[in-house]
């Protein structure tokens, strides 16, 4: 477990995503109603950043072909994607958002 600071709370507006490229793969940090989650950033269908996606009901919709992923688990919620993205453990330290960049896993 090696949590590292990836951003501050203020870097990710409410119901928005932020792409962070500091670890083995780019990850997307999401702010869901003040709670922060991290999943793999690259849509498994076609290369596209999920941080740029549209957030609704705890899911992110890829803006390219409208695949949906659960922001809490990385699971696929709508096609055309068929494979999940990893989810990453997130911690807070004051205003800092920390992510275990080596701890990505599939639900």
């Amino acid at each position: 477990m090696a949590f590292v600071k990836v951003c501050t709370v203020g870097d990710v507006p409410l119901d928005q995503g932020l792409r962070v490229d500091m670890g083995p793969e780019p990850i997307a940090i999401f702010n869901l109603g003040g709670e922060f989650f991290a999943i793999g950033d690259t849509c498994t269908h076609s290369d596209w950043s999920l941080a740029e996606g549209y957030i609704e009901d705890g899911q992110v919709e890829c803006t390219l072909h409208m695949a949906k992923f659960c922001i809490r688990t990385g699971k696929v919620k709508a096609p055309p994607a068929t494979e999940a993205v990893k989810y990453y453990p997130v911690k807070h330290d004051g205003d800092d958002v920390l992510v275990d960049l080596e701890g990505g896993a599939y639900t």
């Binding site: 740029e52 996606g53 549209y54 919709e61 803006t63 390219l64």
Partner: peptide
Amino acid sequence: VLAVSQPKNIAA
């Protein structure tokens, strides 16, 4: 709606 290189606007 139509967008050129503004995919997020299409989602909305």
